[in-house]
Design a binder for these strands. Structure first.
Length: 465
RNA sequence: GGGGCUGUGGGGUAGCUUGGUAUCCUACGGGCUUUGGGAGCCUGCGACCCCGGUUCAAAUCCGGGCAGCCCCA
């Protein structure tokens, strides 16, 4: 196993394949196969997202993957923003198509013509829909599994509101939803308001959830966008208000992708491999029996398996006969299973199990009669530990810098004073090789710009994925 | 957007400079013996990314394509 600290990038590439999260051998650039273990992980993250948005009044839906050229040729900055990144379907069988079809790079152009039909009066609002589908972007840069794919596993929520104030309330709700989700994935983040030139094409403003990884690079794991009436104008989405007046809706979106998986891998993994938070782990408990002259072993292990399963956990018994226990320990540690349960003659005779959490590797005993409470507290403890460790890593990687010289020599998420003008950001980016993430929300400092000395607010800069 | 490197059984590799016989480890199948931190022995299966060129002969040299990786902007 490659050392994580010294070569984070190679470590990532290797671990996602050896842990069976992904198989990169599929012969089309930027498109990867998810083997069962990786797919399970992705599905669990999806279900966490579903649960979070469903409980806030969102409904799941599905729109087609193909978008006709007419829908995309609206004279609109949003469409231009994706020019050059669109895959086109130009033939049906051997015949050229009358109208070329685009593989959605994102779904505004697919959804909003329908929104225009669906939304009639004020009682149709707010409309809160989402879908979890694959989207396609013709990346010309270096692709990277889960981080920059050409086929993107994508969650996108779209809302329409009676007025701007209500869509602003929606933005606040998104923040709560993200908080809820990130607790389960053990991922801390900061919310940055992207600079004008880096906001989502067509939006009024974009807020990004940025994570700083142990490697010192930041990773955007989610974004929310305030569209205002920009899209409603172009797609003619109007409603009759209580006074009978026709008005444009105000809209927002919320997007997340497979980058959540990348963040989990990078943030929690170690030299032994993956470390998965219990909430997301495809296998939460792995039972490893230790053979000996012990006739009760099979029966006892199965009983423990059934008991843990009946408590609602994802548990598996590793019965592979051809491997030694030591091999299995390493194998499951590499795959990030949060807890190992060892069962040998001591356990069967003493009517207990030995449990080992992935992060500490420390053994402890649990009496069978105590299973329910002890497992529940082990899960919460590990979940808390991983969150705290991640927060600590982020703190370590966040650096306060007072002048441009120090920004050059520091790694991580650099907090410095910036006036908000593009020319100054460009200068900072050029000199430091960092990218501007924008102004963090919930940070109220004041000072002078490190470039031009004009009044400034704290901004974040970092190397990015 | 620019530059560089790489492609050999499922995975990791030797061989390439100097053209001719493809090495080792691991995984996998079978068999016996094992099992409290990556077991051992025997045995079997399995590869030169694709297309074209040079040549009596190409894993090796040349060109293109595809794919992967790294660095810079």
């Amino acid at each position: 196993m490659i050392n994580k600290k010294s070569s984070g990038s190679e470590w990532y590439n290797e671990i996602i394949e050896t842990a069976s999260l992904v198989d990169k051998r599929y012969p089309v650039k930027g498109m990867n196969v998810l083997p069962p273990y990786g797919f399970k992980l992705v599905s669990i993250v999806d279900s966490i997202i579903r649960e979070a948005v469903n409980s806030n009044g969102f409904e799941e839906s599905m729109f087609p993957m193909l978008i006709s050229r007419d829908q995309l040729s609206v004279e609109f900055e949003h469409v231009k923003g994706f020019e050059g990144q669109v895959f086109w379907v130009t033939r049906g069988g051997n015949e050229p198509l009358e109208v070329d079809l685009a593989l959605r790079p994102t779904s505004e152009a697919a959804m909003y013509p329908m929104f225009s039909l669906w939304i009639r009066t004020h009682s149709d609002l707010p409309l809160k829909l989402y879908q979890i589908v694959n989207t396609y972007r013709y990346e010309t840069k270096h692709t990277r599994a889960f981080i920059r794919d050409r086929e993107i596993h994508f969650f996108e929520a779209h809302t329409a509101h009676a007025d701007f104030d209500d869509s602003e309330r929606q933005m606040q709700e998104y923040k709560q939803i993200m908080k809820n989700i990130s607790q389960k994935l053990c991922l801390p983040y900061v919310i940055n308001k992207r600079p004008e030139w880096d906001k989502f094409p067509g939006s009024q403003y974009s807020l990004a959830f940025d994570l700083i990884l142990p490697s010192g690079r930041s990773l955007q794991i989610g974004t929310i966008h305030q569209y205002g009436e920009n899209f409603a104008k172009n797609y003619d989405i109007r409603y009759s208000d209580p006074a009978g007046e026709r008005k444009l809706v105000s809209q927002t979106t919320y997007g997340m992708s497979g980058r959540l998986i990348a963040a989990i891998v990078f943030m929690h993994g170690d030299d032994k491999g993956l470390v998965l938070p219990p909430y997301v782990a495809p296998i939460q408990f792995i039972i490893v029996p230790i053979p000996g002259e012990n006739r009760n072993l099979a029966k006892y292990s199965t009983r423990v398996l059934e008991q843990i399963a009946s408590l609602g956990y994802r548990v598996r018994l590793d019965n592979r006969g051809s491997y030694t226990p030591g091999f299995k320990y390493n194998d499951w540690e590499m795959r990030g299973v949060p807890f190992r349960i060892e069962i040998g003659s001591k356990e069967t005779e003493g009517n207990f199990i030995t449990i080992v959490p992935r992060n500490t590797g420390k053994r402890s005993k649990i009496q069978i009669s105590e299973l329910q409470n002890s497992l529940a507290s082990a899960v919460t403890t590990l979940q808390d530990d991983l969150m705290k460790a991640a927060e600590e890593k982020m703190r370590e990687m966040t650096v306060q810098v007072n002048d441009i010289k120090n920004a050059k020599t520091s790694t991580g998420m650099i907090r410095l004073m910036w006036c908000g003008r593009k020319e100054c950001a460009d200068k900072i980016e050029q000199e430091t090789e960092l990218s501007c993430l924008g102004y963090p929300q919930d940070d109220s400092g004041e000072g002078k710009c490190v470039i031009c000395s004009l009044p400034a607010k704290p901004a974040y800069f970092s190397r990015t994925y």
